[in-house]
Design a protein around this nucleic acid. Sequence first.
DNA 1: TTTTAGTGAGTGAACACTCACTTATAATAT
DNA 2: ATATTATAAGTGAGTGTTCACTCACTAAAA
Lengths: 217, 217
Amino acid sequence: MTLKNIDQLFQASLAQSDLSAKQKAVLQASLMLFAEKGFERTTTRDIATLAQVSEGTVYKQFKTKQQILDAILQPFITQVFPQAANEFIAELTARPVTSLHAFIQFIVYDRINFGLTNQKQLKVLVQQLLDNGRLLAELGRVFDKVLQGPVKSILDQLQRQGELVNWSHARIFRHIISTVLGYVLPIIILPIADPDVEKITAEATEFLYAGLHQKKA
Amino acid sequence: MTLKNIDQLFQASLAQSDLSAKQKAVLQASLMLFAEKGFERTTTRDIATLAQVSEGTVYKQFKTKQQILDAILQPFITQVFPQAANEFIAELTARPVTSLHAFIQFIVYDRINFGLTNQKQLKVLVQQLLDNGRLLAELGRVFDKVLQGPVKSILDQLQRQGELVNWSHARIFRHIISTVLGYVLPIIILPIADPDVEKITAEATEFLYAGLHQKKA
DNA sequence: TTTTAGTGAGTGAACACTCACTTATAATAT
DNA sequence: ATATTATAAGTGAGTGTTCACTCACTAAAA
C-alpha cells in the first residue's frame, strides 16, 4: 500500500515518535495553521484551541514556538520526503521503461498529483524555504539520493539508447521539476479550484519530451 | 538610458510621488527590512531607526504597517514591473529577430541578469505572493500585456516561419519563465555567491530551444 | 497666522511563555 | 488484588515584554 498523501506519511512518522496523543495533536494542528496563516501569524493559543488542549500542554513538550516548527519540518525532511521519494521510485521500477515519452509522462502525472493532493503542506515548506536556505540544501540531498537510485539506471539506459540527451541527470531533473512547478505552484498559490490535470500533464509532457529527447545527428 | 536595477526603478517611482524626503526614506528602509527579515519580523521601530525618523513620522503618512507594504508593492506591480517589461520590450525590438535561438538566448540572458541584480526585491515579492494570491493575478496581467505588445508580433513571425511551435503565447512564456526561475530561484534562496551566468544561460537556452522549436514533419 | 510635517514618550492589546496546581499513569509495597 | 507512592501529563490563570499605533506638542513651511 502506497501513501500518496503527505498527511498519512506525516501521521505515520508521528506514530513512530514517542509523543503522547495530545502532543501529536499539537503538531497536527500546528501544521494546519502554519499552512493556512503562516508561522508568524499563528498564535500558540490558536494551536492549543485547534488541538483541543491547554496552552500549557503545548509548552510541556516544546519549549518554544520555533521548536514546534522544527519538530514539523524535521520529519518532513528526514522521513516524509525520503518516504515519498521511495514510493515514487517503487512505482517507477514497477513499470517497465518502455520509452522516454512514457517515462516523462509518468513522472509529470505522478508529481502533479502529488503536488495537488498536498497543497497545504507544500505551502508551509515553500514559506520556510524562503528564510531558511538550509532546508533547500537538505531537500537537494533528497533529490540526489533519488537520482542515485533506480532513476539513475533508467536514465542511463535511455541515454545509451540515444533517446535521452546526454546531459547530467541533475540538469535533466532540474528541467523536469521546473516545468512541473511552473504548473503546480500557480495552482497552489491562487488557488485554482479545478485544475485540468490531463491537459496540464499533456502540455508539460509534450514540452519536456521535445526538450529532452535526443535529436538524430 | 535603461534602468536594469529595480532599486533605481523604485526610486524613480518614489520621485514621481508627492511624498516628503522622510516618507520616501521610510519606504526605502521598509523595503530593505522586509527583504531581509520578512514583513512580520520587521517592527515599525526598526523602520523608523533605519530611516532615521521618529516612529510618529512613520505613522503620519501610513496609517498601518500593512499600508507601508501596500505602498511598496503597488508601484512594484503597477510601475516597476511594467517599466521593466517596457525596457525589456524596447531592447527586444531594438534588435532584429534573427532566429528563435537568438530570441530565446536574449530573453534568458536578460531575465537571469534582471533576477540576479534584484535578488532582495524579488524575495519580498515571492514572500508576499505566497499569502496574497491577488498579487500573482496582477502579475499575470502584466505578463499578458507584454505578450500583447511587440512580443506578440515576434512570436507570430517565428511561428509563421515554422521555427516556433504553434502553441499559445501564454504557454510558451510559461515554459520560458519556469525554466529561468528553475535556475534563478535557488540562487536567490541559498544564496549562491558566484553563479556562472554564462553556463546557466547556455543550459537554459539549449533546453528551451529544443523544447520550443518546430520539428520538421 | 494657518496648515502641514515631524517628534517621542506613552498606551492598550496581544503574544510567547511560566508556574502552582490537578489529574492520570505507572511502579512498588502490603 | 489493593493501597501507597512516585512520576509524568495536563491545566489555565497569570506575567513580562514586545509591538503597532496614538497624541499632545514642537518645528517648519506656506
